[in-house]
Structures are given as C-alpha cells and as structure tokens.
Write a protein that binds this DNA or RNA. Structure first.
Lengths: 207, 207
DNA sequence: CATTAAATGTAAATAGAGTTAACATGGGGA
DNA sequence: TCCCCATGTTAACTCTATTTACATTTAATG
C-alpha cells in the first residue's frame, strides 16, 4: 500500500487517526473532539476508529504518548544549548516546561490527566523518559558534580525541581499563580526557586 | 416552606443539588455523575436542575466552591495546631494539602480544572481565600519575622511554597512523583523542599 | 492460482447524557 | 381572592460514543 487515495482500506488508519486527533486538539485547544470528526478527517467512517482503538480513551492515550515525546524533544533541544553542568541548562528546562504548558495547553493537561492502569503507564512512560525527566536528572547530576563535594541523589533533587516546575506550570494554567499578586512572573519565580533548591542541596553559596 | 416531603416545589433545590452532586462525586471519585442522577437524588425530575444551573459546568462550579472551602477549613485547622511563626505550622499546611489531594481526589482535581471566566474566578476565589492560601501567607510572614532580619515578601514566598506543594500533590495524583524512584516519599520530599525554600529566603541556617 | 480466513471498512441502529420546549402547579404579593 | 412568576414535570431533541451486521480487501495456504 502506498499513499493517500486508497479506497476502502486506508493503509495506515491508526496513525492517521492519531494525527487527526492531535490536529483537532491543537486546533480547538481542548480534548473534546469527536471520534466522528477524527474519523472524517482521516477519511473514514465514524465506526472505523474502533478497529484500531478500543475507545476514545485509547486514542487519547496514543496522543498522550505523542505529547510526552514532544515535550521530551523540546527538553533535549533546550539542554543541548547550554554547557553541561551549568545552571543555565537546568533553568532552561524549566522555561521549556512552562512554555510548553502555555503553548500546548490541551496537550499539557492531557499528559497529567487521569488514566487507568498504573503499571502499564509506568512502563510506557519510563521507556520514553517521560518528557525528558532523565535529561533533567543528567543536568542536575552534572551540576552537582561541579558544585558539591558530597554525593547528591540526582533523581531526588530532579524530582524536587520537577515538582516545583510542574506546580508553577499547573497553577499558571489554572490562572492562580498570581491570584494574590498580579506582578508575579512565573519564570522568575521558578528560576529563583530552582536556584534555592540547588543551593540548598549543594550547600554552596547563592548562584 | 419547611422540610423534606415537599411536593412539587422542593424548597431548597439549588443546595440539594449541590449536595447531591458532591455526594456522587465522593461516592464514585469521579466528576462524571449525570445531571439526571443528581436530580433524582434530590428528588426531582431530570430537567429541574436547569432552573437553578445553566448547565452542568455551573453545578460543578458550585461544588468547586465547596471543595475550596473544605480545603480552606482543613488548612485553618492545621494551622491552629501549631505555634505562630513555627516551621511546623507551615509544613503542616503542606501535609494537609497532600492529604486532601489523596482523600478527595476528585474534588481536588475539580479545583484546578479548566473553567472559563478568569475575572469572575479571581473574585470568587480571592474572597474565599482559595483553600487557605492567605493562611499560609500569614504563617510564612510570621516565620520570617522570627527568623530573618531583612524584609521578605510573604506572598511571594508563600507562592513558591504553594507551587512546590501543588506540584508534589499533582504529580503524586498522576502517579509520577516516584516514577523513577519508588522509594520517594511525597511528604518527606515536600518537607525538605519547603525547608530549603525557607532557608533560602531567610538566609538562615538549615532548620 | 483459487480459496478463504482475518483484518479493516461501511451503514445503520442503539444507548446514554445534556439540554430545551411546552405545559403544570402553587406560593406570595397586589 | 386572584394572578404572576418561580419552579417542577414530561416529552422531545441533539450529540456522541459505541455496537451490530454486512462488505471488501489482503494475504496466507493448499
């Protein structure tokens, strides 16, 4: 099977549906596209998707993988722009996260949405490095090696930083980050917090 | 109008619906109760709710207020158990938050869900102190007065702490907080992070 | 190469949920 | 007391997900 104008058998419907769904999510900035519209966009009938996905959640799950990969790619790109072991690389990861959360609002929320099957997720997600978390761990470890004498648990510290970053991103998405002080700038607040966490962990002077 | 067995006119349907919805959310730990079931539970027909709420989102909004108040009450209670200016009070707020997020999963996610109307939310939310944020601000300010010479922006520092706490709570809810290290304990990680943020802000020694 | 089972599409039906429309009731003020 | 309006009711209506029964290829098999 080659390209577009196939009759009856599409040839690559599964992927076409994932792309169609992603486009609709992108277009409307919401997750409530209809299966029928995704199917139509892929050029098939409304029932066809059910040959490839058990239900809408299964299709969303596939899009979720895509979204997580997308964030991971951005993270990798951001990290590559800064010298290893530098704090700038770590801060850039945070900025990338905030930027993604803003620009890809619906995809971002899709990522953290309720999904079932803990263990299955755990596997998928771990394989994909889940949006670049291991990249952050690498940056954190490198930073600590350059800036601390004592051994530091990179995963632990990275989890602290991720939590902070995720908190800022989600509170901003809920329009609550500057509920009581409109002047608060998410990036600045995050940067400062991350610096503090790094200083606290390494025991060094302010950066 | 007095109590229960009213015919035709319910008497207090609006509140009865809010309670019914909250009960269903509590029972199923999910937000997808049906309007019909909420109505039935309140003893009215499926169309009756629309005399009091424009749509399901409006009913959810009312429940959301309740949830936010509930968290605020817990926060107030937690704060009252610790001496003013102590770090224990601040840490207890975090524990309360994590506990609420676990115990009232659906209510918790409802709080941060997409809702429209930014400015309206801002008003409602600010009036209600949004889950006890101002209590946290008070605790933080008191702490800083006891532990620092320089002036500290309490709202800013409290926002950092809230972000951290919110990040831990939401990542835990998504089962991601210990994705790469199953031994991570959310409370411990949060406590440590909050201490670091406080130390960083006050410039004092580790607590 | 013909046959046929498995995979993948289609159209039409089903079912559940939100929401609206048209009508009913009854409590409270003029 | 009477009438209006808020509040309920029942019966549609619409939109979606999903299933069922049937159609068409593809591809493996003899």
């Amino acid at each position: 099977m080659s390209q577009a104008l196939r009759n009856y058998h599409h040839g690559d419907l599964r992927n076409a549906l994932i792309i169609a769904a992603a486009e609709l999510i992108e277009r409307d900035s919401t997750l409530d596209f209809t299966m029928a519209e995704a199917a139509a966009r892929a050029g098939v009938s409304a029932a066809a998707p059910y040959r490839h996905f058990a239900d809408k959640e299964a299709l969303l799950q596939a899009v979720r993988q895509l979204a997580i990969l997308g964030l991971g790619n951005r993270a990798a790109k951001a990290a590559s722009l800064h010298p290893g072991g530098s704090i700038e690389g770590i801060l850039a990861m945070g900025h990338t996260y905030l930027h993604y959360a803003r620009e890809k609002r619906a995809f971002f929320s899709l990522m953290w949405e309720d999904r079932g099957n803990i263990e299955e997720i755990r596997e998928n997600v771990a394989q994909e490095d889940h949006g670049g978390f291991m990249i952050l761990v690498g940056l954190v470890k490198a930073f600590c090696e350059h800036n601390s004498d004592t051994a530091i648990d990179g995963v632990y510290l990275a989890t602290q930083i991720w939590s902070m970053t995720h908190g800022v991103a989600t509170l901003e998405a809920s329009q609550l980050i500057n509920l009581f002080d409109r002047s608060i700038d998410p990036e600045a607040l995050l940067d400062q917090s991350v610096r503090t966490l790094l200083v606290g962990a390494t025991g060094h002077q302010p950066l």
